[in-house]
Design a binder for these strands. Structure first.
Length: 932
RNA sequence: GCGGGCGUGGUGAAAUUGGUAGACACGCUAGACUUAGGAUCUAGUGCUGCGAGGCUUGGGGGUUCGAGUCCCUCCGCCCGCACCA
């Protein structure tokens, strides 16, 4: 009876599927465990061996938890809306729904091939109306709410209207426009339009204006990554910034909480750090500088600074070239220079600004600002090093304390005020945050924290500044001028946007119900004026109630809450019942790649907080533990062609020729040996190649790089599964190394794991004799091996060290084979222990033991210390730290007895070379060291 | 530049709390069985030396009876952010 993995795996896959073995219920007495994978975008290329790495790890964890008595939710679905499908539709005319469906079917087939324990009855697809109905519903909840900074939570907008009616906005500063102030009387006489516009400035999902990349030639708006080197990626057409009305999510209101609650998450430090950097909190002050009377009128410049303590060191001001005040304050004789500089800045792509070496540029506006404390006049400049999108788009230049300001002042010959005494040497800014402030009026002699407080107090007292926390985080753009995404449940009446669930839309027209289905289109061409394709469908856009919103939602809309839908996927009246979300609660383990470090994870956290604040779910963080899997890199193969000839030279001989390295498909190379016949057929140009061999073989060169189609190094899991089986594939992926580290794929190495499974099979069955398991009593040695393995595997799974688990299985099988063990007492529990890793073979063996039902329902065997406990140990005995002998002692032996025995040992005596004993170190259970 | 991580045989790696460095595999070498081997099994395999032994975890230094592990310093690689005020 051979290990016929093909027959075994096919049989059990069918059994699991037919009997819905992995179906999970929301009703259980068992403790719950939620194990989640980041769901994939189903691309046309299918899965390669790198993709399932995390899925295998989570599957092992889920199966282990299930064997350990948990009710485990382990679902899978598809992030099915997205740009590539739409792009493909534009090129081929095939509807994205059709290609997406096809790609999902292929993904599903590939996933099933690997033997995952997903409950497919819970599958979600973000592009299906029954799913995006609830994405739209959540959008409406965000639209109908505002962020109450006093209570630090999202609240219904109706509450805010009540507040406005009694007290205006006096206690609730407007996040969209800090200068907006009105009282109850003013609110009451606002028109409907004015009221709605005001509320819009508070809503969590709101409309504002933002710049997008507009491409005239393509007639469409482009995503950031579709713009390369300042031109469109497709066709290299010129692009320009265009201001468009867009939807946003007011994630900045959540910034503080998004930082604070990172503390309670079990995420890697790197991941938490990335989130913190992205949010980019900095403490400082906002300071208002008025301008001299001549050219300014009422204008003033507000800056943000993290160093208010350096206020006396201000020698100039810099505005971003895009700053709205630039034109107003520029003097007549500087106007031409400023216009020229602004034109120059427009030609600078972001890429240029990033990659170019530091070079100081800028232009004087002719205007002067008045220092709020000293009344000194300082010149106002513009420069590209000040970014419009950060802080207030304006800075105060403190050359003695900031490197960039210093370079700027030096370059343009602006006199530098020293506020650091000897620590500023005139050559380099003193930017360290240590020592005292000098030459600064009332701040003289203060250390930095004290000076910061004193400066802010003085600015507040003078009415020109305040303490301020600034965030790098921007509100999230939530509009896309695209077809293949969720339509907004929004209509415009008199150009005022209303949610479809509001009475004005809902009452008379029955248009309020969700979902707003994505209409079928014949053409995916963009609409007029940079609008999306939906704008072309006039009779969809225009309804009895109003004009529909023609933007669609971005890719992250559906993925920001999908983990909630899995809990209650069939629910037609709610996004998920409170009962279901209370039961499953947070995701206990979330596995995915680091590419979603900020986007997806930040948005999901925000949506969870908002839904929590509004009372829809009982937790405010979605993912308790996050594990990032490393990438599996490709191992490319090269052949070497002598330049300009048809000679293909083997790697070992290539130095003797002048050669070009050419990538060759890894599927026609065995290890490093090229299949010459297959190579000749691979490309017609190689059919008549001449080969220069070494030892009769053609040896390829190798290099580790990213796995990708263009490098011919993609390995398809289907091929590996066909050749070695899913169990071998699963274990080999884990055996490659730690889950969170990137490592290259090596198809050759899989043989070792495959041999291991065959060797394990031979413990249970013999090729000739068939099933050979006996009921003999196990020996102590056999029980020790088993229990050591039980212990090691559960410890390893607990710390996600799956590679060492696979090693332990190999050690276990090697040792049992050496002992000739074929005993049920050992082998039946072993089949359960390996089930999370190799479920098919485990299932087959379990059934052959005569068990009814599936091994999935078995219990992970209990570890018993008594089988593993030893009462003596072979100690390494060192002299001066170098191991010189091994001696066995009882674990409870006392030091005196050991010392006597060791010092009497002739080998030890020899190494002591007659020197006197200085110290005798004995660490029980570890080692012995004799110091002379 | 800032932040995070990493560096161990020919290769993937192990060493969980400072306690025998290189487990477990791949590859390689030799052998057994075989019509055959890309099956299976046995032995060997960090470097060096005939040997006893010596050396060895990117380089240098330190703490310690003892360091891959802790500290300092330098070098190299990877990831993230980047004229961030």
């Amino acid at each position: 009876m051979e290990y016929d993995f093909r027959a075994i795996e096919a049989q059990w896959k069918k059994y699991w599927n037919d009997n819905k073995v992995y179906k999970v219920t929301n009703e259980s007495d068992k403790p719950k465990c939620y194990v989640l994978d980041m769901f994939p975008y189903p691309s046309g290329a299918g899965l390669h061996v790198g993709h399932p790495l995390g899925y295998i790890a989570s599957d092992i964890y889920a199966r282990y938890k299930r064997l350990s008595g948990y009710n485990v939710l382990h679902p899978m679905g598809f992030d099915a809306f997205g740009l590539p499908a739409e792009q493909y539709a534009l090129e081929t005319g095939q509807h994205p729904a059709v290609t997406t469906e096809k790609n999902i079917a292929r993904y599903r087939e590939q996933l099933d091939n690997i033997g995952f324990c997903y409950d497919w009855d819970r599958e979600v697809r973000t592009s299906e109306p029954k799913y995006y109905k609830w994405t739209q519903w959540i959008f409406l909840q965000l639209f109908h709410s505002w962020y109450n900074r006093k209570e630090n939570k999202a609240k219904p907008i109706s509450e805010l209207i009540g507040i406005f009616e009694t007290e205006g906005n006096i206690n609730h500063a407007c996040p969209g426009d800090e200068s907006l102030q009105f009282d109850a009387a003013a609110w009451k006489i606002y028109s409907e339009k004015e009221k709605r516009e005001c509320l819009m400035q508070y809503r969590i999902a709101y409309q504002g204006y933002a710049q997008v990349w507009w491409c005239e030639a393509l007639g469409t708006v482009l995503a950031n990554d579709e713009v390369v080197n300042g031109v469109s990626e497709r066709g290299s057409h010129p692009v320009e910034r265009k201001n468009m009305r867009q939807w946003f999510l007011r994630i900045t209101e959540f910034a503080e909480r998004l930082i604070d609650s990172l503390d309670k998450l079990e995420w890697s430090d790197a991941m938490k750090e990335m989130q913190k950097n992205w949010i980019g909190k900095s403490n400082g002050a906002e300071v208002r500088f008025s301008l001299t009377a001549e050219q300014s009128g009422e204008n003033s410049i507000t800056v943000f600074t993290t160093r208010p303590d350096t206020i006396f060191g201000v020698d100039f001001m810099v505005l971003a070239p895009e700053h709205e005040l630039v034109d107003a304050i520029t003097t007549a004789d500087q106007k031409q220079a400023i216009d020229e500089y602004k034109t120059y800045v427009k030609t600078r792509s972001e890429r240029e600004r990033m990659s170019e070496v530091k070079q100081v540029t800028g232009c004087f506006t002719g205007a002067y600002a008045i220092h709020p404390l000293t009344e000194k006049q300082v010149p106002v400049w513009i420069s590209e090093y000040v970014l419009a999108g950060y802080g207030t788009g304006a800075i105060m230049g403190v050359p003695s304390g900031d490197e960039r300001d210093h370079a700027f002042a030096k370059y343009f010959g602006i006199p530098i005020t020293n506020i650091f005494g000897d620590r500023y040497n005139g050559e380099e800014a003193y930017s360290a945050k240590a020592g005292t402030i000098e030459n600064s009026g009332f701040l003289n002699g203060m250390n930095i924290p004290d000076a910061t407080d004193a400066a802010i107090n003085a600015l507040v007292k003078a009415g020109v500044g305040k303490k301020k926390v600034n965030y790098k985080l921007r509100d999230a753009g939530f509009s896309r001028q695209r077809y293949w995404g969720e339509p907004f449940p929004v209509m415009y009446v008199d150009d005022i946007p209303y949610g479809n669930d509001e009475p004005i839309i809902h009452n008379d027209h029955k248009l309020g119900s969700l979902p707003v289905e994505l209409p079928y289109v014949e053409s995916y061409k963009p609409g007029p004026e940079g609008q999306g394709p939906l704008a072309n469908i006039a009779d969809w856009v225009t309804t009895e109630a109003g004009q529909r919103e023609t933007n669609t939602m971005p890719g992250y809309a559906g993925s920001s809450w999908y983990f909630l839908r899995y809990m209650d996927p069939g629910n037609e009246t709610e996004f998920a019942s409170r009962k279901a979300t209370d039961y499953w609660n947070q995701v206990d383990l979330y596995i995915g790649g680091t590419e979603h470090a900020v986007g997806h994870l930040l948005y999901s956290r925000m949506w969870t907080k908002a839904l929590h604040d509004l009372g829809h779910i009982g937790f405010d963080e979605p993912f308790k533990k996050l594990l990032n899997q490393g990438m599996i890199q490709g191992s490319s193969r090269f052949v070497y062609r002598e330049t300009g000839t048809k000679k293909i030279v083997s790697a070992g001989l290539r130095r003797q020729f002048e050669v070009d390295a050419v990538r060759v498909d890894v599927s026609i190379v065995d290890g490093l040996e090229l299949d010459i016949e297959a190579f000749k057929k691979w490309r017609p140009e190689y059919a008549d190649s001449e080969f220069i061999l070494e030892d009769g073989k053609y040896i390829c060169g190798a290099e580790v790089e990213k796995m990708s189609k263009s490098k011919y190094n993609v390995v398809n899991p289907d091929d590996i599964v066909a050749q070695y089986g899913a169990d071998t594939f699963r274990m080999y992926e884990m055996f490659l190394g730690p889950i969170d580290v990137s490592k290259p794929w090596d198809t050759k190495g899989i043989e070792g794991v495959h041999r291991f499974l065959k060797k394990m099979w031979r413990l249970y069955a013999d090729d000739a004799k068939g099933w050979i398991v006996t009921d003999e009593k196990a020996t102590d040695a056999e029980l020790r091996i088993l229990h050591k393995t039980i212990k090691k595997i559960s410890e390893d799974i607990g710390r996600f060290s799956f590679n060492t688990s696979v090693s332990q299985f190999m050690i276990c099988v090697n040792e049992l084979s050496a002992l000739g063990c074929h005993k049920r007492e050992i082998l039946e529990p072993l089949a359960v222990v390996i089930c999370p890793f190799a479920p098919h073979i485990a299932e087959e063996l379990w059934q052959k033991f005569g068990n009814n039902g599936t091994v999935v329902a078995a219990s992970y065997p209990a570890y018993e210390e008594r089988y593993v406990a030893e009462n003596s140990k072979m100690y390494p005995v060192a002299v001066n730290g170098k191991t010189r002998a091994e001696m066995e002692f009882a674990l409870d032996a006392d030091q005196a007895a050991i010392e006597a025995a060791v010092l009497a040992d002739e080998n030890i005596v020899k190494w002591m070379e007659g020197k006197p004993l200085k110290k005798f170190i004995y660490v029980r259970g570890k080692m012995i060291n004799v110091v002379v």
